[in-house]
Design a binder for these strands. Structure first.
Length: 463
RNA sequence: UCCUCGAUAGCUCAACGGUAGAGCAACCGGCUGUUAACCGGUAGGUUGUAGGUUCGAAUCCUACUCGGGGAGCCA
């Protein structure tokens, strides 16, 4: 007798038909009659369930008929063709052992639950159809991203989670400390004395691996990071989490154009890979989450992304005839409503917007020849908004130094970052891709809390 | 953080100033091919929390907590 998984049964049913097999998994539902019944079993390996038929010949027939959803069982029997229309085959049980009982108050039902409720039982929601699909896609997408970069000889750099630099410039940070809050050490000025802290200085959770990635980029040429990122911003939106995963490639001897080509290739590769390797999951999303999903994704893999400059975007918005809440004028940053118009209505596909005024972009972005814009690029996609933010980096020592001065930043904090420009600073570029935002785009799920296993958001760190 | 909407049985919802209900889940029973199984029955509630108005509050008012949507910040 062979043990099998549901995935194997569906992949190679000929090998198993009319043979005795053993299969183990969790009960999704039981339908019982007087002398026989059916169990829907999911073993976690495949999106579809296996139907098990059992009858009163089983010694524990009564017990099986009363199984509660969620119970773990091990079933043995022959795999036979099913007379029912909804499944090609089923297991005719000769024996069913109960590995773990469930309880009458099992919170998951056969009927549909709201995503809001399922977030309150995040430890059980991967057992639902939707979340089983989301997290298999998440796993496959992560693999596809590594595969994409590895096949192109990029080096995967694992940058630190704890950073001693408070100068990453990407927002509020979470403090990391071992100090006793009830008895904080103070210095002469009565301020907290961080020299007594674990690292002898202030430390925080990283908000970006970019600065460190640049260091490795200027040694390995092409690198990428893929790791957790932490932002202590009080953001309450369906697109923000305090802990999320980010992919940050960095390429040397390359500029903004190569950077955008890389981003486009990577997205198309990843989406194509998921479409090919998660057909059941993607069909499910298309049927139950977003009816236009597959058409949109398949179209995206074929089409060229749009390209416009910030200045062109302003012109498009001015000529659009739309009534916007925020004014459209050169020198004003693009608001969400503007971004949505450009990617959803004007282009109807992903669009790179480049060359923003330096005033609302980070210090490290490369100054353009016009002296007022920088070589930045944002990728906007319909439904999700900004999915990628990147730039060519300022590789000229004196320009970077000048920019730090203009913004009132302390050059001492950036000594090693400046060093990278001092010792063979080559043109280089990179971007950050929010992994969860990619998953939202891939699955049609509209809340970031539903594409990360145990979401951390303001006032919520349960589990 | 701001604006806005919401919170009623385990879940999804109804009742909108006058005795809190239904479907599903659970429990008991019936049913020889079901598949969101079906049929009959039982049980299940200080209506998010704390105040207030009223003869009377799930319903009106205030504050708070939590959640949804929108905005800002951004990935």
């Amino acid at each position: 007798m062979e043990t099998a998984t549901v995935k194997e049964l569906f992949a190679r049913s000929d090998n198993y038909l009319n043979k005795k097999i053993q299969i183990s998994g969790w009960v999704k539902t039981v339908r019982s009659s007087k002398t026989f019944g059916f169990i829907e079993l999911n073993d976690g390996t495949f999106f579809s369930n296996l139907q098990i038929v059992y009858d009163e010949k089983l010694a524990n027939f009564q017990e099986i008929a009363r199984l509660i959803t969620g119970s773990a069982i091990i079933a043995t029997g022959e795999l036979v063709e099913s007379p029912g229309a909804k499944q090609p085959f089923e297991l005719k049980a000769e024996r069913i052992d109960i590995a773990g009982h469930s309880e009458p108050d099992y919170p998951l039902q056969k009927k549909r639950h709201t995503f809001e409720y399922l977030r309150t039982i995040a430890h059980l929601r991967p057992r639902t159809n939707t979340f089983a699909a989301v997290f298999r896609v998440r796993s496959v997408a992560a693999y596809a991203i590594h595969k994409f970069f590895q096949e192109r000889d990029f080096v995967h750099v694992q940058t630190p989670i704890i950073t001693g630099s408070d100068a990453e410039g990407a927002g509020e940070m979470f403090r990391v400390t071992t100090l006793d809050f009830d008895r904080l050490p103070r210095d002469d000025k009565k301020e907290v004395d961080f020299s007594k802290d674990f690292f002898g200085k202030e430390t925080n959770l990283t908000v970006s691996g970019q600065l460190e990635a640049e260091s490795y980029c200027l040694a390995f040429k092409n690198v990428y990071t893929f790791g957790p990122t932490f932002r202590a911003e009080n953001s309450n939106t369906p697109r923000h989490a305090a802990e999320f995963w980010m992919i940050e490639p960095e390429i040397a001897f390359a500029g903004l154009q190569e950077n955008m080509n890389l981003a486009e290739d990577m997205l198309k590769y990843t989406i194509g890979y998921v479409l090919k390797h998660c057909p059941e999951e993607m069909r499910f999303f298309n049927n139950f989450v977003d009816k236009s999903l597959l058409g949109r994704l398949e179209n995206l893999v074929e089409s060229k992304f749009g390209h416009i400059t910030y200045s062109e975007a302003i012109e498009i918005l001015k000529k659009s005839g739309e009534q916007f809440e925020y004014p459209v004028a050169w020198g004003h940053d693009l608001q969400t409503e503007h971004e949505r118009y450009i990617t959803e209505k004007h282009f109807g596909k992903p669009v790179f917007v480049t060359d923003y005024p330096k005033e609302f972009k980070a210090f490290y972005m490369r100054m353009n020849d016009d002296g007022r814009t920088v070589a930045a690029m944002d990728l906007l996609v319909p439904g999700v908004g900004e999915i990628i933010g990147g730039s060519q980096r300022e590789e000229r020592y004196d320009y970077l130094e000048k920019r730090l001065d203009e913004l009132g930043l302390n050059k001492k904090d950036y000594w090693w970052y400046l060093d990278l420009r001092k010792y063979g600073g080559a043109p280089h570029a990179g971007f950050g891709l929010g992994f969860e935002r990619l998953l939202m785009y891939l699955t049609g799920m509209t809340n970031i809390r539903d594409v990360i296993s145990f979401p951390r958001t303001p006032k919520n760190a349960e589990f």
